[in-house]
Design a protein around this nucleic acid. Structure first.
Lengths: 220, 220
DNA sequence: AATATTTTTTAGATTAATCTAAATTGAGCT
DNA sequence: AGCTCAATTTAGATTAATCTAAAAAATATT
C-alpha cells in the first residue's frame, strides 16, 4: 500500500529539517515547516511511528527510520528530476517549477522515474543546484559556498540557491542571475555588505542578504 | 479553488458515459464505472450540482454543464498528452501508461500542459488512437471502425482500441499488434467469428471479441 | 527548588468521501 | 389504477486529516 500525500509530505519535512539524514526534529519545527498546528503534527507522528517510518518519543521529537529515509530521499529524487524535466525539456523557468514538482513528486511509479532519469541523461543536480539522489538514495555533495563569502575581485559560478520561494527566484531572474552564470565581485560595501557584481559585461547590484542565499563555486 | 481528485474523476466518468458531450447519465452507471456505491454517487452529484458543474435532478440522472464539460474535456486532454509523452519520449509501452496518466492528469498547471503540448509537437491522437482535445476542447474525429467489421481480404491500419485495461493491451502487444501496423484479414470463422490475419508476413489468430475492441482505418 | 514559560499532547469537533441498510420513487405490467 | 421491482435516495456510521482549546510535560528563570 502506498502512502498518502500527507504522510509523504511529513516525511519530506522531517528530512529537510533534520538536515543530516539522521538527527531528531521537534513537533513545532514540523508544524512551522508545513504551516499546520502542533496537534496535527502529533497525530501524524503517531501514525508514522506505527508504520515504522520514523522513531518517535512523546515530547522528544522524531527522526526518520531506515525505511523513512528511503521514502523521503526517493521523494527528493523525484522532485528534482521533475524540476530538471520542466526546465530542460519544457523550457520553464527555475522560479516556476517548484510548485509543480511538489505535485509531480507524488506520482507512483518507479519505472516512470527510472525512464525519466534516463531520458534526462542521469542529471546530478537540479535547476536550483541541489543534488539529485540516485536510485540508492546517495548523492554527491558539491563544494558550494554563499556568494556573500567571496572577497572583492574573486569570481564564482552560480550553482544554486538556499531559498526555494518564488518571489526570491523571480528577483534573481529579473537581475539576470541564473545557474551556470559566472560573476565577479567588484566591490563589497563595508557598512551594509551590499555587492557590486560584474556578469557578462553588465554590472549588477545585490544586497548582502540576497547574496547570502546564492550558492557559488569559486572560479580561478 | 481547484477540484478534488474525486470530483474530477466523477466529471470524467460522466463525460465518458454520456458519449456525446451532452446526454444524461444514471446514478447506477456512474457507480459501476467508478466501482463505488450508488449512495456515494448521489452524494457527489449533489455536490457537483451545487458547484454548477452538472445539471442534476433527483431520480433522473445527471449531465455536464458548460463548465463541467470544459473541465472534463481538459482532463481528457491532459491524460492523453501525458500518455503521448510516456510512450513517445520515455519509451514506455502503450499497455502500461494508462494508470500513470490517470494520476498525471490531475496535476494543476495550465502552463505546464501548454508547454508539454508544444514539446510533443501538438499531437492529435494518443497512443491508443484516441483524439486529443485542443485547448478549446475541440477534437478531430477519426474514421475508425472495429477490426471485426472488415471483410475477408480487406486491410486496415490499427489506430486504436476500445478497452484501456492493461491485460487486454498486453495481450495485443504479445501478438505483435500495435498502433500503425497494417493487417489484412485472411479468413473469418463463420461460427465463432475468429479472425486469421496477416501482418508483416506473420499470421495471427484473433478471437471475435478481441477484434471487436480493436479500431482500424480501412486501407485500399 | 519553586515558579514561570514554552512545548507538546490530549480531548473533542469538523469536513470530505466513503460505506451499509432502510426507505422512497418511478417505470413497466397486468 | 394498482402492483411489483429495480433504481435511487436518505439515514446513520466510519476513516483520514485537520482544527481549537485545555491539560500535561519539559525547560528556563529566579
Amino acid at each position: 500500500m502506498g502512502l498518502s500525500y500527507a504522510e509523504e509530505n511529513y516525511l519530506k519535512a522531517i528530512l529537510k529539517l533534520s538536515g543530516s539524514p539522521d538527527g531528531t526534529v521537534s513537533t513545532n519545527a514540523i508544524a512551522a515547516q508545513l504551516d499546520t498546528s502542533a496537534a496535527s503534527v502529533t497525530d501524524m507522528l503517531k501514525k508514522l511511528s506505527d508504520k515504522e517510518l520514523i522513531t518517535y518519543q512523546r515530547y522528544k521529537g522524531a527522526s526518520l527510520s531506515e525505511e523513512g529515509q528511503r521514502v523521503a530521499t526517493s521523494l527528493l529524487r523525484k522532485h528534482r528530476l521533475w524540476e530538471v524535466f520542466l526546465v530542460q525539456s519544457l523550457g520553464m523557468t527555475w522560479d516556476e517549477v517548484h510548485e509543480i514538482a511538489e505535485e509531480l513528486e507524488h506520482i507512483q511509479s518507479d519505472r516512470l522515474i527510472e525512464r525519466l532519469d534516463n531520458f534526462l541523461g542521469h542529471p546530478k543536480f537540479d535547476p536550483h543546484g541541489d543534488p539529485i539522489p540516485n536510485k540508492q538514495g546517495r548523492y554527491t555533495l558539491r563544494a558550494q559556498i554563499p556568494l556573500s563569502t567571496l572577497v572583492s575581485g574573486q569570481s564564482g559560478m552560480i550553482i544554486g540557491v538556499k531559498e526555494d520561494d518564488s518571489p526570491f527566484l523571480k528577483h534573481l531572474n529579473d537581475k539576470g542571475l541564473s545557474i551556470g552564470k559566472i560573476v565577479r565581485v567588484l566591490t563589497i560595501d563595508e557598512y551594509d555588505h551590499g555587492l557590486l557584481l560584474r556578469m557578462e559585461g553588465d554590472d549588477v547590484v545585490l544586497s548582502g542578504q540576497v547574496a547570502d542565499h546564492i550558492l557559488v563555486k569559486p572560479v580561478a
